[in-house]
Computed example of a mutant assay.
Amino acid sequence: MELKIDSLKDIDRVAGEFVNSIGNNHVMAFYGKMGAGKTTFIKALCRQLHVVDQVNSPTFAIVNDYETDNSSHIFHFDFYRIKNLEEAYDFGYEDYFYSGNLCFIEWPELVEPILPENTLAVTVQVNEDGSRSVIF
């Protein structure tokens, strides 16, 4: 499926469509070049999911834990700065990926071998006209 974000004013609507389309998928791997808008889209997803915490990139923390207004948790990962797969083992990735909570993973390339089998691959790409496409 492909959703198009023509401008930032469309991002919340598209995020709502995405949330309504993901079914039972809990772990989502977000692919895209630097600056494509992965974090911005995840922030919009968190708004749609009623996150009450401040949402920002977990670049240095590796994982952020956000709480929603119904006390469920969403885990947001950024694996850009990890050097090897062992770092994911060290922080106990299984506790997150298999928790049943939503997991949004940026820069999943290095951890692909440990992603759950049913991980939803999501690509955020910049189009020639400056719009973004979310493909999953």
Results as ranks from 00 to 15, higher is better:
V19E: 02
N20Y: 07
N20F: 07
I22D: 11
I22E: 10
G23L: 10
G23N: 08
H26D: 14
V27T: 14
A29V: 09
A29I: 09
A29Y: 11
F30I: 12
F30Y: 10
Y31F: 15
G32F: 04
G32L: 06
M34C: 00
M34V: 08
M34T: 02
G35V: 03
G35K: 03
A36K: 02
A36F: 01
G37L: 07
T39K: 00
T40F: 06
F41W: 08
F41S: 00
F41I: 06
K43R: 12
K43E: 13
K43Q: 14
K43D: 03
R47T: 04
Q48C: 12
Q48S: 11
H50D: 13
H50F: 10
V51Q: 03
V51R: 04
V52A: 12
V52P: 01
V52L: 05
D53R: 01
V55M: 07
V55S: 04
N56T: 14
N56R: 12
S57E: 06
S57N: 04
P58K: 04
T59F: 10
F60R: 11
I62H: 06
V63M: 06
N64M: 04
N64H: 15
N64A: 13
D65E: 14
D65L: 15
D65V: 14
Y66M: 11
Y66N: 05
D69F: 00
D69Q: 02
N70L: 06
N70G: 00
S71E: 13
S71V: 00
S72H: 13
H73K: 15
F75K: 10
F79V: 03
R81F: 02
I82V: 07
K83E: 11
N84T: 10
N84V: 03
L85N: 05
L85R: 01
E87A: 09
E87L: 06
A88G: 10
Y89D: 12
Y89A: 10
Y89V: 11
D90I: 06
D90T: 09
F91C: 04
Y93L: 08
Y93A: 04
D95P: 09
Y96D: 02
F97R: 06
F97L: 15
F97Q: 08
Y98S: 07
Y98K: 06
Y98A: 11
G100T: 08
N101E: 12
N101T: 00
N101S: 15
L102M: 13
C103A: 15
F104K: 03
I105P: 15
E106F: 03
W107M: 14
W107P: 15
W107E: 14
W107I: 10
P108D: 04
P108N: 00
E109H: 06
L110G: 14
L110Y: 01
L110E: 13
E112G: 14
E112C: 14
E112K: 14
E112T: 15
L115M: 06
L115E: 00
L115I: 09
